[in-house]
Structure formats: structure tokens, C-alpha cells
Design a protein around this nucleic acid. Structure first.
Lengths: 351, 351
DNA sequence: CAGATCAACGAAAGCGCGTTCGAACCCATG
DNA sequence: CATGGGTTCGAACGCGCTTTCGTTGATCTG
């Protein structure tokens, strides 16, 4: 291999290796002239510090790891999350890491097996990551949380169900996002809007429900009980809920489904009933899962700003902005809001 | 941190650190009794060898990296590849790596910028990965290929367009897969099958065409020129091709689209014409992109065995089965075949 | 001008492990 | 008993870097 070392650079710049190290780490107390000389030497030699050596000698490992559920990754098309969930996190985190000379590593962990403790412990001990990014459901896995705390690894939690467990939390803004979608429908002129709720044991379901109801109330719009249908985040539950809605004497003109799969189900039921979306009934989803991008019509939905969240999370971890004993939500002004993705499934109601 | 080191284990097992090292690396020349004693000590102490120290001292880095196109990751829903492309590779590779105590790291690289050379060079120098996994279009990037060769890093290429460039190549089995799909349609009873070709500059398009024609010929089925429509992998080209097909006096009873987007377009055109899939015309796609999973009807398609391929690729790299100057295709019997995913869009032709 | 302070840099000591090389031990043979 | 080959083990060195702890000279005080 014979890679170029810090000694080579030091020799060429005619300084000690310590000075080269100082320059490479942007430390103070180096004259600008010296700094330039070192940089030039490094450039000329094609020098890149060895990651392993840096982490062995120093206190940082230059690695940010993400723990993502393996089962979720395999079955994500059946899950609430979009299929590109991993890709977007990877993009945001990798970008932030590269700028700082860090590396992002995603570790798939299977929360179903009892070996989680051993696997995660192993990863933590071998990698000594400078920070860990937790996604649902890892963000609420007590074993993982405990291991992280005991090894003194700073961590952030994306969309935690539970505040307990420490770390820097990035709560999903489901409530606000649901409100935003409701505003969109109301803005289109809809007054009779139904909602299909998600699996109630998820906090997200409850938050979306609340956001919807609050926004409706704010506009003085009432929502009869019959327009609030229970679903469970699956396509078929969306079909059933929509069928129930269609059979009503007083039909809503728009349906807000708590996720995309159910929205797709609702559109299918509407088509089945000989009606069309959005002409007869508008349908809105939530999550921007990939299914909605190719549906006919394409689905209007809310997209979580995952790329930005992952980037900010990684950046916080890298900058040491997340102390080991951190236990708080991220500042509200740093939590990017979900984007409303308006496509074809929503339109003004029939006059 | 005060992590437990190899010295602690050595002391507890009453052997030298070299012996502990031998045990941890499964080297020979250690009595079974000694081995057990060391293992017990390590277990009791919760010892995990430090990755950085291992890679610094030894010749292996225990890291397998994948270079994936960043733009593709962002826009994958518009691409030929499925949205879960990254997830599946991650799953396969991570699994294979974990079994061997290795770590898998995906690096997003933007082939559009001129800084590719610097970024990739940096990654290679800093990480010293024991092997690299290249996916399209990285698998055909000459800069990347050259850098890999010059640093002496073994690499495998998934779905390369070009044989030139070295490495262990995992050619896509488009030809065979297209044949398999054709068999499926013929097996259903179809005799009049049309094909919508993909963008001709991709080798995959040509291979799928050949696989289809060969399978048809094998069954003594003829394919008139008018049943061979040119497309370009986009939804709209699928619509147009299908419209042309539907206007024919002698209509096919099944359409084999060279990818899912075009298949979706074909189904849309069929619906537009007042016909239905699969009752009037069967439609088959290719790639198992996520759009087809939620379409109505759900699309019959071919799925590339990405998980298995990535796992085998990682394993080959780890086992050192890929020499630095490797320049060949993987053994045919190790190349997992694409899976036929039969869903609702294909059925026997009307009697 | 003595003394104190501070910026700029360097020498040497590890970080935790793999590796090299030789020492110690075993049993079988002459 | 001496010799030999194979097996099993350990001391010491070094991977490429960060750190700690100087050392030097320059600038600042009273």
C-alpha cells in the first residue's frame, strides 16, 4: 500500500508532524504561512489522513452510525414509512458527514431477536461511533437506549414515540402537518371533510387526528362522528373506511387518510363505486410513500423532511452539540416542517 | 471510555495477548482448552476488539464500502430502478458483513461533479476498504474504476454496462429473466404477445428484447414487427406504445413492457380505451419498482435478486475471493436468478 | 531591563491491536 | 540419550496518528 503518511507531509513542508496534525484538524496556533505550506505539501503528495489511525490515537472515531430496523427495511412497502426512507436519511446524513470528514454508517438491526443487546453492544464497542441516529422503532427500543447511555454515546432520536429515554429528540410534527393538509383541503373550498384514522397505538395517529380536528374547528367546520373512520394504516382498512363513508347519506367531499396506503385504498373504493377522484371526492394521504407517486391519480400527500432532519441530526452529533446526558427536544426552529406535496388527487369540490 | 482491552482478556485467561489475538481471529495452533479459556474470559469481560486498532495494526480494515450514485438516490422514483434499491443492497451486504465481523458503509457519490476523483480518492485513502461494491452507474465510471485499480482495492460491479474496467462483474440476467417472463405469459396460454422496448442505449434493453424473442421463437410463436414497439423506459412512452398496439387490427392479448413504468403506462392506455387488465389484455412489467405494487391491478413483474447479489458480493470481497486484478464475470451458478413476481396484471387470455 | 505572558512549534509517549521471530515444548526416531 | 521435526506460545516492535508536555522566541508589563 505504502500510503503517504503525515511524516511525508511534515518533511516536505519542513515542519514537525504535530504541526501537520494541527493544520489537518484546523487547530489554532499555526501561522497562516505555515498552514499554507503544509496544505500545499499535503495536496502535492495526495495525503489523506488514515481514519483508523486518527480514531485510535484520538478520542473521536469520525463515524456516525444509524440504527435502522431490518424488518422495516425489508417490508417497508407494507409499512407506514415510504420506501425511500433509508435513501433519504442516507442522503442527508452522508452529506453532512462528508463536509466534516466524517463517515456515515447504517446498521440494520433486528429488534425481534433477543440478540439485540449483543449485536448493538458489539457494534458500539467495535465502532465507538461519535454519535448514533435512531429511527423508529429503534428510537424507542429500551435496550438500545440503555446501551447507548451506558457507553456514553450521544444520540438523536427521529420520531420517538416516547419522550423517556434521553437523547436529542426530533419529534415528528404530525399535528402541524395534519393541520397543513387540512388547510389545503379547506383552501380548495371543501367543508365536508372526513378522516381515516391510523393504528391508534401509534402516537402519530393520534397527533394527525388532533391536527385535523383542530384545523377544522379553527375554520368553524364541524366533523360528525360518522366522518371519523378508524383504520390501521393498511390498504384494505382504507378501502373499508371509504366504503363506509360512501354509504353515508351525507357524504363528505374530501377524505383525509392518515397515511398513503389507506389513501390508495380509499381511491380504490371510490373507483369501485363508480365515482372518480378528485372530481367526485378529493383524497389526501400522508407520508409520501412511493405508491402515491404512481397512483392514478397521483396522490396529494405530506412529506417528512427526512433529508434535512438527518442532515441536521448528523451535524449536531458531529459538532458535539448533543451531550452524553442530553434529554430534550430539538429547538423548534431547527425542526424543519413537513412539506405539502400537491398532486392530482385533490381538487375543489363540485359546485 | 476505559474499554476492556486484549491485555485484560490475556491476564484473565492467563495467556499472552498473542494467543488472545489468535483466538479472536480463528487462527490455528491453539489448543482447544486454551481457546475455550480465552473465549470465556472475553465473554466475561465483555471484550470486543477495537476496529480501528485492528485495521491499523493489521492489513485488513474490516470495511466494505458501496459507491452509489447520489442523484439516483434522490430521484430514484423516476429511474428505472426500484425505490428500495438501496435498502435491499444494504440488507444483503450488511447481513453478509456482520457474520464476518465486517462493516458495510455506503457512500453516495455525485458522478456529475468534477470532484469525483478527489472525493473517491479521499474515501479510499481514509477508509482503506477491503472491498468496494459498485452499482450502476458507478459500475461504469472510469474515474472510479481507475482509482480502485490504482489503490489496489478489490471490487465487484453490479450490473455493469461494459465488461471493460476489471473487477468481479455481476451481470444482470436480463436475457434469462425476460425469457422467464415470456414463459409465464406463454404458460398462461398467450400466443399473441407484444413487447415494449426500453431505451436502446442500455444494454439491459437489448438483452430483454433478445430474451423475449428467443423464448417466443422457442415456442414457435411469431412476433410481427408491429408488436415490437419502441419505448424509452418512461410512463408516457408506455402509454404511446400501448395506444399504437391497441389500434392494430390484429391486437396482441398480452404486452410485455421492458420496465414497470412503461407497463403502468400501458395499463393506463388500456383503461383509457375502455378495456381492462388483465381481462382483455395482460400486462407484464420488469424491475419490481414500487409503483407496480400499488397499481390497480397490481403488476406482474420481474425482481432482481438484489439482496442475494449484494450478500454474495460482500461475502466474496470479505473472503478475499476477488483478487486485486480480477477481471471476470461471477460464476454463473453463483449469480442468483431474477424472481418472477406474479400479481394481478396477467391472466389467461379470453377464450 | 528583569520578569511574565503568550503564540508557534517540536519531541516523545502512547492508542489497541497484528506481526515477526524466536523460544519452549511435545513426541518419535536412531 | 541425543537429534529432529512439528506444535504451541510470548516478547517486542510498529501501524499512523493525537496528545501531553515541553521549548523557543516574541511581545508586553512596571
Amino acid at each position: 500500500m505504502a500510503s503517504v503518511t503525515i511524516y511525508d507531509v511534515a518533511a516536505r513542508a519542513d515542519v514537525s508532524i504535530k504541526t501537520v496534525s494541527r493544520v489537518m484538524n484546523s487547530e489554532p496556533n499555526v501561522r497562516q504561512e505555515t498552514r499554507d505550506r503544509v496544505l500545499a505539501a499535503a495536496e502535492a503528495l495526495g495525503y489523506h489522513p488514515n481514519l483508523s489511525a486518527r480514531s485510535l490515537a484520538g478520542s473521536k472515531s469520525f463515524v456516525i452510525a444509524a440504527f435502522v430496523d431490518a424488518a422495516l427495511t425489508m417490508d417497508h412497502w407494507r409499512s407506514e414509512r415510504g420506501a425511500d426512507y433509508l435513501s433519504r436519511i442516507q442522503l442527508g446524513a452522508t452529506t453532512a458527514c462528508r463536509e466534516a470528514g466524517y463517515h456515515f454508517m447504517v446498521e440494520l438491526i433486528d429488534h425481534a431477536t433477543p440478540r439485540v443487546r449483543q449485536e448493538v453492544g458489539n457494534l458500539l464497542a467495535a465502532l465507538h461511533p461519535d454519535g448514533v441516529l435512531l429511527t423508529p422503532p429503534s428510537a424507542d427500543d429500551v435496550v438500545v437506549l440503555e446501551l447507548l447511555a451506558s457507553t456514553g454515546t450521544p444520540f438523536v432520536r427521529l420520531g420517538p414515540e416516547n419522550a423517556a429515554g434521553g437523547g436529542l429528540r426530533f419529534p415528528t410534527d404530525d399535528r402541524a402537518a395534519a393541520g397543513k393538509m387540512t388547510e389545503h383541503l379547506v383552501g380548495l373550498g371543501h367543508k365536508k371533510i372526513a378522516i381515516i384514522l391510523g393504528e391508534p397505538r401509534y402516537a402519530a395517529s393520534r397527533a394527525r387526528r388532533e391536527g385535523f380536528l383542530a384545523a377544522m374547528a379553527e375554520h368553524g367546520l364541524s366533523v360528525p362522528e360518522t366522518w371519523i373512520q378508524q383504520g390501521d394504516f393498511t390498504f384494505s382498512s382504507g378501502v373499508e373506511a371509504a366504503e363506509a363513508l360512501l354509504s353515508l347519506a351525507d357524504r363528505p367531499t374530501a377524505i383525509f387518510a392518515s397515511n398513503d396506503d389507506m389513501a390508495l385504498g380509499a381511491m380504490a373504493a371510490i373507483a369501485e363505486a363508480g365515482l372518480s377522484t378528485p372530481e367526485d371526492i378529493s383524497v389526501a394521504g400522508f407520508d409520501d410513500s412511493s405508491g402515491g407517486r404512481f397512483s392514478r391519480p397521483q396522490l396529494t400527500t405530506m412529506r417528512q423532511p427526512l433529508v434535512e432532519m438527518a442532515a441536521f441530526a448528523a451535524k449536531s452529533l458531529i459538532e458535539g452539540a448533543v451531550p452524553v446526558d442530553c434529554d430534550q427536544d430539538v429547538d423548534a426552529d431547527h425542526l424543519p416542517a413537513s412539506d405539502l406535496v400537491v398532486r392530482r388527487s385533490t381538487a375543489p369540490p363540485r359546485a
